[in-house]
């Protein structure tokens, strides 16, 4: 486990927000970002290339001249009922074009063999690699990496956690959750 992840788990006063700024106008549609991401996450590292496993995908529509790099967000078990469709500068973007979810309505952001959801982990690794791989390989500067520190108010964060735990309790029951927490804390100590 990386240090960064722990920063997010235990509640501290400051945390580092990692951000990739996407300049859609600069994207040349080359998909080097997909190649780089899939290589970085291959096991062993770099041992295979397969853009279908990438956690960033360039939504491309040649006819309409649409090239939008989208980063895999969280998994969602159900598709949205209402969908959104954008028109920007006269170009009509596909339904869900900007959505980051790994969702049952499309085959985006799923492992090709298992169908398991993929999500961008900002290339967290030990030792850390500096800029994420996709950013390093995007020579068009369509992807720009930024880090910033953000103050985190403890109260609010605790509230967040409470909400999360509550949701888990509703789903699995208090006993199961307590068991799991116990097991995890033992494993962490080992």
């Amino acid at each position: 486990m990386s240090g960064e992840k722990k920063v997010e788990f235990h509640v501290h006063k400051k945390r580092i927000i990692k951000n990739i700024k996407i300049d859609v106008d600069k994207c040349n549609g080359c998909r080097a970002c997909e190649v780089a991401c899939s290589l970085f996450h291959a096991r062993p590292k770099y041992s295979s290339n397969n853009p279908a496993r990438s956690r960033v995908r360039v939504i491309r529509d040649l006819v309409n001249d649409i090239y939008v790099p989208v980063f895999a967000g969280e998994y969602t078990p159900a598709e949205c009922l209402g969908r959104d469709k954008y028109v920007i500068d006269g170009k009509e973007y596909d339904e869900c074009a900007f959505c980051r979810a790994s969702c049952p309505s499309r085959d985006l952001f799923k492992e090709p063999d298992s169908g398991l959801p993929l999500s961008c982990d900002m290339c967290e690794s030990d030792p850390p690699i500096g800029e994420p791989m996709c950013v390093q390989w995007c020579l068009a500067d369509a992807l720009i990496y930024e880090e910033r520190e953000e103050e985190v108010e403890e109260g609010v964060a605790a509230g967040d956690m409470e909400i999360g735990v509550e949701a888990l309790i509703v789903k699995y029951g208090l006993e199961k959750i307590a068991e799991t927490v116990g097991r995890l804390s033992k494993r962490d100590k080992n």
Partner: peptide, 21 residues
């Protein structure tokens, strides 16, 4: 296509590709 293309010597290959870039 959604299959892997395998690399024989991954670290070396990445080093070379980064040199090219």
């Amino acid at each position: 296509g959604k299959k892997d293309v395998n690399i024989a010597h991954p670290a070396k290959m990445m080093e070379k590709c980064n040199d090219i870039l």
